[in-house]
Design a protein around this nucleic acid. Structure first.
Lengths: 338, 338
DNA sequence: GAGAAATACGTAAACGTTTACGTAAAGCGA
DNA sequence: TCGCTTTACGTAAACGTTTACGTATTTCTC
């Protein structure tokens, strides 16, 4: 098996305490013995056992990350950021795929509890009471990313969805559009659903444009298919529509795909603006104008906050609204001459 | 802190050994004490400490997964499969983002060694000697996914790239194309680069079509930009080209984007077939015909093989070629009448 | 009903560390 | 040179489990 600290101690003719001190850079030994021990470590190829360390330090240098879907394009970019920050802070990350299932989430939380992770990043889902109780039991810091908790006071990292939607809508209005529709999420989704619809609605109202239920479709998901199926419905409700705000890039691209099939030219006959700025946004044709969420940055920031919380450098973490920007590409045309 | 087995023992008036036996389902106690202990566990909310367990069992129930890029669409689908299989087998997964950097890879491998993971999944990169040495040191099973090792005998899960490319090319030939180009990877990439180019070349030759260097462009990466930049070059070398095989979906979509900009109609004037079947393949317009790699399945299979290896149910793992299929969508047109 | 075998536990060592405490030697000021 | 502080270690307990072994009690067997 792997050599232990005992083997090193024997090989170097010192006690295990001395080896431990040298490995951890604590004071209490001469230069001479240090060299001797380091040679033994080298010779035996000794690697400290993180498990044994964890047992006594009550620190595993590991965090858990829960996503509703690891292969979602959104999740994967956030994950990259988290992993990066964790690694820089000396932590490993365990990924958990909750598939938006409550049971699975609880199971994972229990697992992370058994594994004694030092902190948790929770993404893209509402925090149920059941989860929060486990958080409390676990006594480890938690940070939310790309979501927020309506009921509990947990630090989060996200963009202001209301404002993002508001600005996206204004962007269309400023380009002369007056018949603007929206492909939205669910009324029951307090994170990405409601605020984006509100932003849309209030932007319309602010500029004196009419708003009714005919201006939006709601969807249970934010996927390509949802967008693709929504466009014809929306077109029926709002036949003169010249511009469209979709609550996600996937839906925007779905709508674009439906438009192609219906022979509607984008952006000449229909302008589309999306939300997220996934990598696909610049790959479709025409390239999608969209509200950019700095996904990787958000993950990174959440990771950094969590690490600081774990290290105790901050006691109470402040939440962070990340800046969004509108990425202008080719899917929106101006009706006026600017 | 969290209650320990000692607390439970005290609470139930038994020894810790008895509690341990009950928790682990080993024999050696009466129904009566079992009930008593379970009540104590319930009452205290006891959760066994996986760290302590790991220390004594020399099993952490954790595997490490190394990807060159976690946010790549390819990686994220594979990861989902791996995570799924691991979870089903009772394992957690630690993700590592090597960013294709050798130094970082080694650092991660060392980390996984310290953390005493029970196995490793290594994705999408060639296995260097340096890595292999660490694998040997670690004495844990390793399985490769979406890659293979040219020098070392490690089990892998992947599709036969040569055949996939061959069939993709034949698919175009069967639809009457004779002027076929390829946007390929690198000559130095023994995994995805060379075999796909060979498959392309040999399909051409088998059907008596000419092949020269003018038929392919090579690229260092497999990204959108590579494809987008390659199309004009290829068109210059092969002006009569009516069909195109791209070694990745991203490149195919890049080429499609370039075609749009050049006013070349896809598929009427140029047919394109891709490779991978990423989620974006069905989202672009026209939807991309492509060679499907069962990414999630591959991850799942690799995970299952690894778990079996760890549990010792298999001693020597066989490698697995996964089946590819050609997904027909709208980016290829037939020149003949079938 | 005596001896053997099975059952139902408890005791204590082990896993590989960290660290509080103890101690001998060295260094030092007067 | 004496007493004190500092340095350089070693000893052993602790972290929370699992498990080999021991032992008292019960259950069989004939």
């Amino acid at each position: 098996m792997n050599p232990t600290i005992k083997d090193v101690a024997k090989h170097a003719n010192v006690s295990i305490a001395t080896v431990s001190r040298i490995v951890n850079g604590l004071p209490g030994y001469s230069e001479e013995t240090k060299k001797k021990v380091q040679q033994s470590i080298e010779a035996l190829g000794y690697q400290p056992n993180a498990i044994a360390r964890g047992l006594i330090n009550k620190r595993t240098q590991t965090i858990g990350v829960l996503f509703p879907e690891v292969s979602g394009m959104l999740s994967s970019e956030v994950l990259e950021g988290v992993e990066n920050a964790a690694h820089d802070g000396g932590f490993s990350v365990i990924v958990c795929n909750t598939t938006s299932s409550g049971k699975r989430t609880v199971k994972y939380l229990r697992l992370l509890q058994e594994k004694r992770v030092d902190g948790i990043i929770f993404a893209s889902e509402d925090v149920k009471e059941e989860y929060y109780k486990i958080f409390e039991e676990m006594q480890v810091p938690v940070v939310l990313v790309s979501t927020a908790s309506t009921h509990y006071n947990l630090p989060f990292v996200r963009v202001n969805d209301y404002e993002g939607a508001f600005k996206a809508t204004e962007y269309l209005i400023q380009r002369g559009h007056t018949q603007i529709g929206m492909i939205g999420g669910s009324h029951h989704d307090p994170i990405a659903g409601v605020p984006r619809m509100q932003g849309f609605q209030e932007a319309l109202q602010k500029h004196g444009l009419p708003f009714s239920e005919n201006h939006v479709t709601t969807n249970e998901g934010y996927r390509f298919q949802n967008g693709k199926e929504s466009l014809p419905l929306l077109l029926k409700k709002l036949p003169n529509m010249t511009a469209l705000f979709a609550a996600s890039d996937e839906m925007a691209i779905g709508a674009m795909s439906a438009a192609h099939q219906l022979g509607i030219k984008v952006p000449e006959e229909l302008s589309i603006i999306g939300y997220d700025n996934l990598k696909i946004a610049e790959m479709c044709y025409p390239a999608l104008t969209t509200v950019s969420q700095p996904l990787k940055d958000m993950g990174q920031t959440a990771g950094e906050i969590l690490v600081n919380l774990i290290k105790g450098e901050q006691k109470e973490a402040e939440s962070r609204y990340m800046p969004f920007t509108i990425i202008e590409r080719q899917s929106v045309s101006a009706l006026n001459d600017k």
